[in-house]
Design a protein around this nucleic acid. Structure first.
Length: 375
DNA sequence: TAAACGTGGGG
DNA sequence: TCCCCAAGTTT
């Protein structure tokens, strides 16, 4: 009998995966997977959440840290939220970390410590949307779920030369993936599509000569593959201005405080700073400081967020702790310099602190260098 | 439906 | 330097 074109492509892609798959810390690669060895759903879930809008390279060290610190979903559920935020610091999109903890608690305390094994059950959990639910169902539970992420969108849009722009064309693409998804090894098929998109069917300069389905790719045959997927135009980034205040006491400790538990950088730690506004209105200078001190202008750091660019003027002051205690507005604490690097500081805050104290995050390096230069 | 939500790397 | 983007979800 003759396979359908979709099934033919599926077979070629899975065969390609068997030879060219990436070995990743959270993955059970063939031939182990073919023997029915399933990956730990906890590790699959953790990796999938970390990988949302985030590169494999960036995720690797965080995945190692999390699985060493919290080997099971129950360990994570019983952890202090603050420790989870500290461990997530630097990875970005911090709502993921907040939802990660909530999801772990739901699984540990409401689902008997086991993840639901269906798309529907998974999608009901915090931080798990269409993609992640399908990915976990397919990879961890061998369900023939239609897994559609950015990689798969690229592969599918090129195979079928989908002219309609994203995200409107998502339902069409999901239907096209569903048609290709096999009853056997659906998890390996999903991972094969993602590996194909990541290593062959790349956004720019795709390696079509090496593609297992280059014989049936509409974009390659009739057009420029790089033209796909078609996306809606992006908006330009507004600039916001603000000021940050790095107060250092006589021991080198830095005054820190906590951000609200929602919104931008929600639940993360910060140095005191002003609102970030569109226009310089006079409130972004040293006069906006959280308490009176001799504030020294350390210059500006630029940090680009998803939807705006921030230009932060950084001020530093040397403050006697006893003196400052009575003048500090609002709650906060003095963080010793040796433990500063372990705080739940997002990158923009580390950047601001480093602007004021260049070696703030290398106190050991500093003393080692001093020792060596003397030795 | 559109906007909010981080970061670092690569062309 | 600048722009794109990388295994999306929530509101």
């Amino acid at each position: 009998m003759t396979n359908s074109p979709a099934a033919d492509q599926t077979g070629k892609i899975v065969a390609w995966y068997d030879r060219h798959h990436r070995d990743l810390p959270w993955r059970i690669s063939p031939p182990m997977a073919v023997r029915g060895i399933r990956p730990d759903p906890y590790r699959v879930w953790l990796s999938e959440v970390m990988l949302q809008q985030t590169t494999v390279q960036a995720v690797k060290s965080y995945f190692a840290l999390f699985t060493a610190k919290w080997p099971t979903v129950t360990d994570l559920a019983e952890a202090e939220t603050e420790d989870v935020m500290k461990a997530w610091a630097g990875l970005g999109y911090y709502a993921r970390a907040r939802n990660l903890k909530k999801c772990a608690e739901a699984v540990a305390f409401s689902h008997g410590g086991r993840f639901p094994d269906t798309e529907e059950g998974l999608k009901a959990l915090p931080g798990i949307g269409d993609y992640t639910a399908a990915a976990i169902a397919a990879i961890a539970f061998d369900r023939p779920a239609a897994v559609l992420d950015g990689n798969v969108e690229r592969v599918i849009s090129r195979l079928h030369a989908v002219d309609a722009p994203l995200p409107g064309s998502k339902p069409l693409m999901r239907a096209l993936v569903a048609k290709m998804t096999p009853g056997e090894r659906p998890g390996d098929f999903a991972q094969a599509m993602m590996d194909l998109g990541a290593t062959i069917c790349t956004p720019r300069r795709p390696a079509c000569a090496l593609c297992p389905v280059n014989g049936s790719c509409t974009a390659l045959a009739s057009d420029d593959p790089e033209r796909f997927p078609v996306k809606a135009g992006k908006k330009e980034k507004p600039v916001r201005l603000g000021a940050a205040f790095v107060a250092v006491d006589e021991t080198g400790a830095v005054f820190l405080r906590k951000r609200p538990g929602h919104g931008l950088l929600g639940g993360m730690t910060e140095v005191p700073n002003t609102d970030w506004t569109a226009r310089q209105n006079g409130a972004t200078g040293a006069d906006a400081a959280p308490f009176d001190a001799a504030w020294h202008d350390c210059g500006t750091v630029v940090h680009v967020f998803t939807h705006f660019e921030l230009r932060l003027t950084v001020f530093r002051s040397r403050v006697g702790r006893a003196t400052a205690a009575g003048h500090v507005a609002g709650p906060g604490w003095w963080e010793p310099e040796e433990s500063l690097a372990g705080e739940a500081l997002p990158s923009v805050m580390k950047k601001a602190i480093a602007q004021a104290i260049p070696d703030a995050f290398q106190p050991r390096l500093r003393s080692q260098a001093a020792m060596q230069s003397r030795g």
